[in-house]
Each structure stands twice: as C-alpha cells, then as structure tokens.
Design a protein around this nucleic acid. Structure first.
Lengths: 336, 336
DNA sequence: ATGAAAGCGCTAACAA
DNA sequence: TTGTTAGCGCTTTCAT
C-alpha cells in the first residue's frame, strides 16, 4: 500500500504538500510541484485510505441510504420494482460526486440512526418510511437528510416526491372525459402518497361539470394472500358496479388485469383499468396499461442534488419538491 | 461523541479493558468488569468510530458489492427484477454478521478494484460480470471474492450460481413429455448462464427416445428497440414453425406472451411458452407462465455465507456451487 | 511555497 | 485481570 508519506519521500517534499495537491489546494503549491506530485500519484498508484481520512476529520465521504424494511415481509420488495432503479440511480449520482453509498435496510428508525452515527455519514437519504418514522429520523440525527416520497404536515423537512395529487387528478379527469362515471380508486392504505392521489381523484370529480359521478376509495389488503381472498369475494361484481378502476400502483393494476381476465371481465370493454407509476410491466401486460408516469431516475438525481446542497451549506434549499407526472394513454381505458 | 476513553474513565478502567469487553474477549476481563462496562456502554450510548477501527487495523467490516453496469443502458436494470431482491438479501445477510455493505455499480473492473482498495474491503461480492472481467477482478484483488452467476473454464474461482444446465434440461424434458417436438430456446446471448441452459436443452433432446425432435437456439437482440423490430419480422411465423418457445428468462417470456397475443397467436393452444427464473411477473401474466424456479434469497444467503468462510480463513471452501432449480407448471404450456 | 508536528479513536503487543 | 504505549494514514494548524 502506497501512503502519502511514500509519495512525499519519493518527491522530496513533505506529506502536507502531497495532501494539498490531492485536495486541489493549488494556491499553496507551485505549479511544478503540483505536476510532479500528480504524476507520482498516478505512477505509484496511490489509493487513499478512507479509514485515515475519516479519522483525521476530513469528512467521511459516505452517504447513507436507509430503506425501510417492511417487517419481515418480502412481497413489498417484489412489488416496488422501481426501488431497483432508484437505488442504482442514487449510487450513480453519489459516486459522480466522489462519495460512497452505504446501503442499509432497516426495520426501525433507531437502528438507522445508529447505523448513520457509526459511519459518521455526511448525509442520509431515506425511503419507504412513514411520516412518524421520518420525523424521528430527522430529529435524532444532525446530518442533512432528504427523504423520498414522504408527506409531512408541515413543510420543514427536506423531501422529494411526486405531484401525487395532480397525478390522481389528471387521471381522473381523463376518465371523466372519456365517459366514466362510476370510478373506484384502489390502494392498500389511505396515508401519504396514496392519500394524496385519492385527494386528486376527489378534486377532479368536484370540479367536474356533470355531477352524476360516483367515486369510492377501496382499500385492499397489502399482503398478497389476503388480497387474493379479497378479490375472490368482490371482484366478480365489480364490473357491474364501476366503469373504471384506478389503482394506486401499476403493480396492483397489472395483478387485477390478470384476475379480471380469469373471471371473464374484459378490459377495457367491460371495465376500464388505470395504474400509477408507469413501470415496465405497464408496457408488457395486455391490454397495455393506461397509467400515470413518473421518472424514477429524475427522482434519484433530484434527491442527491438536494442532499448535496444541504451538505455544502446552501441556505435556501427548498423543502418539499414535487416532481411532475404525466398521463400515459394505452389500451386499458376506453371511451364510454 | 462518546469514545472508549470516556467509558474507561467513567468506569475507572483502561481503554484496553473497554475494548476487550466490546469485542467479547471475555477471558481477559472479570465478570463484574464486563457487566459494569456493558451497562455503561449502553447508558452512555457508545457508538464506535468506523474510521478509527479501520485505521487501527481491526478490519474494516466492509463488504463491497460490485454490480456490473451494462454500458449506460438502463433496460437491463428493469429487466432483472430480482437484482432488487438479491441486493436486499445480501445486505440483510451481511448486516446480520455485523458487517456493512458498500454498494457500487461499476462500468469497468478496474474501477471496481480501486473502489475495493480505497475502502480496504474485507470481501467482495460481484455480480453481472462476464467471465473475463470476473477473472480480472479476482486476480487483481487479494481480498476474498465470491461471484454470482459466472461460468469459469476452470473451477478455481469461488462462485455461486444455479444448476442452469439442469434447468434447461428439466424444462425441455417436460416439453418433450408433453408432446412438443419443435422447440426453440430463446436468449440474448450464448455465453455463461444462457449457454449452459441451452446445453441442458440439447442434452434433454439427445437423451430422448423419440429422435424426431427439432431444436434451435434463437438469439434475440438485448436492446429493446431492436428486439421489437426483430419480433415484428419473425414472430408472425413462429407458431407454424415451433410447438414451444423456451425463453432464458421470464422477462423475455412475458414480453413475448404480450406480443404473441397482439398478433393473435394463442398461448398455449397454438404455441407453448416457457420461462426461466420464476419472478413475480410469471404469476401475474396471463396465461400464467410455466417456468424454472430459482430461489434468489437463497442465492444471496449462500454467497455471503461462502464469502465469510473465506474471510474466516476456512481452507476447504467449495469453489463453484450450483443451487438447485425446480420446475413450476402453470398455464403457458399444454399437452400436445 | 513548503514543512513540522499534533492528534483523530481505536487496537494490539507487551508489561505489570 | 488490567494498564501502558505505540502506532494506523491522514488532515490541519502553525511555523518557516
């Protein structure tokens, strides 16, 4: 292992000078020295020791990414297929800035805090946590934190999410315009993101001229088994009761598409179906899924950008950013 | 921040003793002292400094996970939906052993090596790399490395993968038994994993009594656009030419299912379709997909277990492990 | 423009 | 069973 000291000796200068060159403090070093050292650094294949760096207090260059681990269940990991892309994009963005990503799946915020403290991370990106847990994390840690997809009562927390309400609204407007009057919004909860999407649904209906609109929010079980049981009971009658089913995620929508096909309900002829997210599956299923598009990579980029604004001491970092969503029209919705 | 020194002072002992308690060297410390220190550690909320630990040479407790970044393309990330679960399972296993996972998506092996050296990782798990890159990584780094899903010419590298050949074989045997005689194996390459699966296909056919069997290996473009174009040209005639299409991944199989539906080819009536992996999508598509099941979590567990056998100096670590696969019969294949 | 020196928190070899 | 001590490689302050 080549140390700064080794380079210094070879160059006939002091370790301080080498350190200065490494950190680009070029005002303190003569041009010739800089060049000489830089060549040596390369030739001798110098690789910094993160341990020493961390200890010496130069910053750890570690960003922690905390992913909420839904208590021992794995179905979630499968459902949220974009967590994959998100994590990848986060790492790309973090590494681009010469930082490193320490990824941890944590069941409790407390453990997450300990994790962050142990590594003395310079910043934290958290995802999948509820409001309460996110606040707990924010308040018990003093490093910059950016959360993804959380809704706070006040707007003092740094967060990047989607314009979920608008997503709910534009899809519902579209459904209304295409003649749907009995619309069910289907999600597995009524908090955070899904609550906002549902509010968007409501707003669109309230603003609509034709008041003979029926909407309902159906909450389905999150756990797959229970959900299947639920569908076995209620899916049969659904096409008589509703014109359109608007699911809070493509995952649920695609699943429903299959189950509807099983019981002979034709989509979109008998019933329209819409999703949210625009994942790969929305393009691959049949009929193709009309859905609300979100740009996951943009989300990651934005979150990292924001985190670094914090880290670099930017004063006026916006708190909650809601990235835009767009409508993607495909085959699962038809004019009535 | 609470240091070992602080705890030591409070307890009236030396830092060494505290360190010993922390590391469970209980033979060197009296029982009362252990208890006293442990209480203090908890009460004062001691959190170790990884930087200091790394520097002092007690091991970094960092495992690097290197994921090959297919040159700038993102379709891959979407396709391999199990990378998600794999990474999560890896972290869980690593953390269970009180280690930390540093995740990095790298375009070149060289960068990966630098990454590993910078952090002085105690071990490396690599995935998505080809044979050549994997060997390059193995030979230029002196930490234990376990690769996932790589095929080496010799068996000197530590690797965990699937019994891919058997997977290809059992599916093909099943197809033959159910009366299929013209079978195409479809993948986007003919190396590594896919090559093995294809060999399995061949072996099954060679061993089959009825020799009037036609098999072919079709290579489709990896890039989605080109693949779509390819399908537009050739998919039309496929049901006349083959009885069954056996795809090297569920992802491709499900995609084909949709495209076949588009052009009016009925699966399984006109043509049987099979996949490999048994991902979530195989259950959700219609018809449901007959496929070869692999256990991704087991793969992760196994890889980490193996890596730690190396780290702990185990001499007789097996080199290549091939985890079992099983047949999953669903609706996309029918008796002919 | 360059260097000397202190110290970050911890571990481990050695002493007591 | 417990303590003393010497670094690990780097950054940073203060001299020069």
């Amino acid at each position: 292992m080549i140390r700064i000291k080794d380079i210094a000796e070879k160059a006939g200068v002091s370790p301080t000078t080498v350190s200065n060159v490494i950190h680009g403090n070029r005002k303190k070093v003569s041009k010739e020295t800089v060049e000489k050292i830089e060549k040596l650094l390369k030739d001798m294949d110098y690789i910094p020791s993160m341990g020493a760096r961390m200890l010496a207090g130069g910053g750890t260059r570690v960003i922690g990414v905390l992913v909420a681990e839904p208590d021992g269940e794995k179905h979630h990991a499968e459902g949220h297929s974009f967590a994959n892309i998100l994590i990848r994009s986060l790492e790309l963005e973090i590494y681009r800035r010469n930082y490193y990503m320490l990824l941890h799946f944590t069941a409790t915020p407390e453990e997450g805090i300990q994790f962050a403290a142990t590594w003395n991370v310079e910043g934290l990106i958290i995802l999948g946590f509820g409001t309460a847990d996110s606040i707990r994390l924010q308040s018990s840690s003093h490093v910059p934190i950016v959360s993804i997809d959380v809704y706070y009562d006040d707007e003092r927390m740094a967060n990047v999410g989607l314009d979920d309400r608008n997503g709910g609204r534009i899809m519902t407007e579209y459904l209304l315009e295409t003649g749907h009057r009995r619309i069910a919004f289907v999600s597995d909860n009524d908090i955070g993101v899904d609550h906002e999407r549902w509010r968007g649904v409501c707003e669109a209906c309230e603003a609509y001229s034709d008041k003979k609109v029926h909407i309902r929010h159906i909450i389905i079980p999150e756990e797959r088994r229970s959900r299947t049981e639920y569908y076995e009971k209620y899916l049969e009658g659904v096409s008589g009761e509703y014109d359109a089913l608007f699911f809070a995620s493509d995952y649920y929508a695609v699943e429903a598409l299959a189950l509807l096909a099983d019981i002979g309900v034709r989509v979109p002829e008998d019933l329209s179906v819409a999703g949210f997210d625009d994942t790969e599956s929305a393009r691959i299923c049949r009929p193709t899924l009309t859905t609300v598009h979100q740009d996951v990579e943009e989300k990651a980029e934005h979150a990292v950008k924001k985190l670094f604004e914090f880290i670099e001491g930017e004063r006026k970092v916006s708190m909650t950013d809601r990235l835009p969503v767009t409508l993607v029209l495909r085959g699962s919705v038809k004019n009535r």
